[in-house]
């Protein structure tokens, strides 16, 4: 998934990764790669780590992302600045705009207000992980059909919020959508279309209220 990043960008080779585990490396190296994160968590438990960069493994869109990160690096920064996953956007970096929304498990969260180190061991889904084999998800398709986007910068966040809502509640009404999307900001003013798209993805069609009238 991830291409080799330039120097100091946090990516590191498998060898340095295990080396950085220090004495644990031997144990971890012999174990399944999938258990590395669990091992790490156990080792790090009650152990003080940082402030310098430490190995962090994130499971993003079904793939492992192994990074060297200072504990203060947020999940959003890890995705956008330490990997090539720029789908989640930085709109405020203060948990107010929702452009950075990703799913932890099935739960939408603001990735800007979550430390990457805390997000280990949980399946993370970003907007890049929704389309399967180039086929748009139901929610993505509805956003496209209903033109529920303008500049598109808030779109990944809204798509994630709506996706999470439909997982929790497959037949939401307008009030449910408003409640679920209250934490997402759009400055282009695409809200009515986002509402229509969310409902369409839930199988509820709303008609456009636009009317064209000839002047002459």
């Amino acid at each position: 998934m991830k291409k080799m990043e330039p120097e100091n960008r946090g990516a590191f080779s498998r060898r340095t990764f295990f080396k950085s585990l220090g004495t644990v490396a031997a144990t971890a190296a012999t174990a399944q790669v999938t258990s590395v994160a669990a091992e790490l968590e156990k080792v790090n438990a009650e152990k003080i780590i940082g402030p310098a960069a430490v190995p962090v493994t994130l499971k993003v869109n079904g793939e492992k992302l192994k990074l060297m990160l200072e504990p203060r690096v947020t999940l959003l920064d890890a995705l956008r600045n330490y990997s090539s996953l720029t789908g989640a956007k930085e709109g405020c970096d203060r948990a107010t705009c929702g452009a950075c929304t990703v799913l932890l498990g099935d739960t939408p969260i603001y990735s800007c207000q979550k430390l990457a180190i805390e997000a280990q061991g949980v399946e993370i889904t970003t907007v890049e992980g929704l389309a399967k084999n180039e086929k748009l998800s139901k929610v993505q398709q509805a956003f496209l059909t209903k033109d529920a986007l303008q500049c598109g910068y808030c779109t990944p966040g809204f798509v994630m919020s709506v996706t999470a809502l439909l997982k929790k509640n497959p037949r939401p009404n307008a009030a449910d959508v408003k409640h679920a999307c209250a934490g997402n900001t759009c400055r282009c003013g695409t809200h009515p279309r986002i509402l229509a798209a969310a409902l369409q993805a839930a199988g509820i069609e709303t008609a456009s209220k636009t009317e064209v009238i000839d002047y002459v």
């Binding site: 709109g91 203060r94 900001t185 400055r187 003013g189 986002i194 636009t210 009317e211 064209v212 000839d214």
Partner: peptide, 26 residues
């Protein structure tokens, strides 16, 4: 200087919007 106190309309604030386009292709 943030979205917490510089308040923007959200989905719950937005009304029902109806659009009439006056077509003047000429």
């Amino acid at each position: 200087p943030n979205f917490e106190t510089y308040k923007l309309p959200g989905l719950a604030d937005v009304p029902d919007i109806e659009v009439v386009l006056i077509n003047m292709p000429e």
